[in-house]
Simulated scan of single mutants.
Amino acid sequence: MKQLWHHCHAVTLAGGQYAIVRDAALIIDAGRIAWIGTEAQLNSDAAFDEVHDLADAG
Rank of each mutant, 00 (worst) to 15 (best):
A10Y: 02
G37R: 01
S44L: 13
A40Q: 09
D45M: 15
D53L: 13
A30E: 12
V11M: 09
V21E: 09
E39G: 01
D23G: 10
M1E: 13
A19P: 10
E39T: 04
H6M: 15
A10C: 09
R22K: 15
V21M: 14
L26G: 02
W35T: 00
V21W: 09
A24M: 06
G31R: 09
I33R: 04
S44Y: 06
V11L: 09
K2H: 11
W5V: 06
C8T: 06
L42Y: 03
F48D: 03
L26E: 07
N43P: 13
H9T: 07
C8I: 07
V51A: 11
A10K: 01
D49F: 10
A34G: 02
K2G: 05
V21P: 02
A14W: 03
A19M: 14
A14T: 08
L54K: 08
A40D: 11
L26Q: 06
I33F: 01
Q17T: 14
T12C: 01
A46F: 08
H52Y: 15
G16E: 05
A34H: 03
S44A: 13
W35V: 01
A24P: 00
A25V: 00
E50L: 11
A40G: 04
A24T: 04
A19R: 15
E50R: 14
A47E: 15
D23A: 07
W35I: 02
L26I: 13
T38V: 03
I33V: 10
Q41I: 01
D49Q: 13
H6Q: 14
A46P: 07
A25W: 00
H7T: 05
D49S: 11
I33W: 04
V11Q: 10
A14K: 10
I27T: 14
I36E: 00
D53S: 12
T12P: 01
D53T: 10
D29A: 09
E50G: 06
L13V: 08
G16V: 02
A25P: 01
H6R: 15
F48C: 02
D29C: 04
Q17G: 06
G37S: 02
H6D: 12
R22C: 10
D49M: 10
A47Q: 14
I27A: 03
A46V: 02
T38P: 04
G16Y: 05
H9V: 05
G37V: 01
Y18R: 14
Q3M: 12
H7Q: 12
A24N: 03
A10E: 02
G31I: 04
C8F: 07
F48S: 04
G31F: 05
A47R: 14
I27P: 03
I36D: 01
A47M: 13
G16S: 04
W5K: 10
F48E: 02
I27D: 00
R32K: 15
L4E: 06
Q3V: 11
S44K: 11
A10W: 01
A24L: 07
D23L: 02
C8R: 04
M1D: 12
Q3A: 05
A40S: 12
A40Y: 05
N43T: 09
L42R: 05
Q17S: 13
H52L: 15
V51H: 05
H7S: 08
H7W: 04
